[in-house]
């Protein structure tokens, strides 16, 4: 009788799965990036109370938060092509729907999902920057955009860094659903392996190990970045160079 649990298999699976790790990481990083950019826009719309956009943003966030990622992936995967086809028939355009790879849909759906969750944390990070700094920037003659880019976002970043890390980690977990868009990343590959040798349990154990290690590594990287971004405890006095003149 075959072994109930093939311990070795858990580890021999790993190299084959790791070949697909780059896809998982690309998906997660791109989705997090889109999530941050879009989340920033949503946060600014809410902070500046821009009419109409504000209501649209609130509705978007509410829908995304209130529906499962899996469903969102399906909706984007089937919805976007339908929308393009509608445009094609209505306006006689020739948008090449079939050529868009599933990867794009997966990134789009995961990015939209991430933006809804990160917008609120981005907003509170932006609001944590003292209003006085914005006023000081304005008083110097800086525009809102300049103040945002040079003063507010850099400080908000340090506040938001741990939550940005969480978004990245949840995006990584989210990528395990990307098979819905016909993307083969590590989980999809794991299912393929499992289907080949019927050792599903072993391959899921392998996957668990990989996801866990990736998360641990990301946490460590974040800690290092946080440390690097921190204002130093103490600095040396500035010594005037007498020979400068």
């Amino acid at each position: 009788m075959a072994k109930l649990f093939d311990f070795e298999q858990v580890f021999t699976n790993i190299p084959e799965l790791l070949k697909y790790l780059p896809i998982t990481l690309e998906l997660a990083l791109l989705a997090t990036f889109i999530g941050l950019v879009l989340g920033l826009l949503l946060a600014i719309v809410k902070m500046k109370q821009i009419p109409v956009l504000k209501q649209i943003a609130a509705l978007f966030v509410s829908i995304v938060r209130g529906t499962p990622v899996l469903v969102q992936l399906y909706i984007v995967y089937f919805g976007v092509p339908m929308f393009f086809k509608y445009l094609n028939t209505k306006y006689g355009t020739h948008l090449a729907v079939a050529e868009i790879p599933g990867f794009v849909y997966a990134v789009l759906a995961l990015g939209l999902n991430s933006s809804a969750f990160s917008s609120e944390m981005i907003r509170s990070a932006l609001m944590s920057v003292s209003k006085g700094q914005l006023e000081a920037a304005n008083a110097l003659g800086m525009t809102y955009g300049q103040a945002l880019r040079r003063i507010i976002i850099p400080e908000a970043m340090t506040v938001a860094l741990p939550t940005i890390g969480n978004s990245l980690i949840s995006a990584i977990k989210g990528t395990s659903l990307a098979f819905t868009c016909a993307v083969v990343e590590i989980t999809a590959q794991g299912k393929i392996i499992g289907g080949r040798n019927y050792r599903y349990f072993e391959v899921y154990c392998s996957l668990a190990i990989i996801y866990w290690l990736v998360t641990v590594v990301i946490e460590q990287i974040l800690k290092a970045v946080e440390k690097k971004m921190a204002i130093p405890e103490q600095v040396e006095s500035y010594i005037e160079q007498k020979d400068e003149k």
């Binding site: 003292s130 006085g132 700094q133 006023e135 000081a136 008083a139 850099p154 400080e155």
Partner: peptide, 15 residues
Amino acid sequence: QNTGMVFQQFNLFER
């Protein structure tokens, strides 16, 4: 740019 402001709370850029 023609006027400079000094605030009660200093408002220096923290970072």
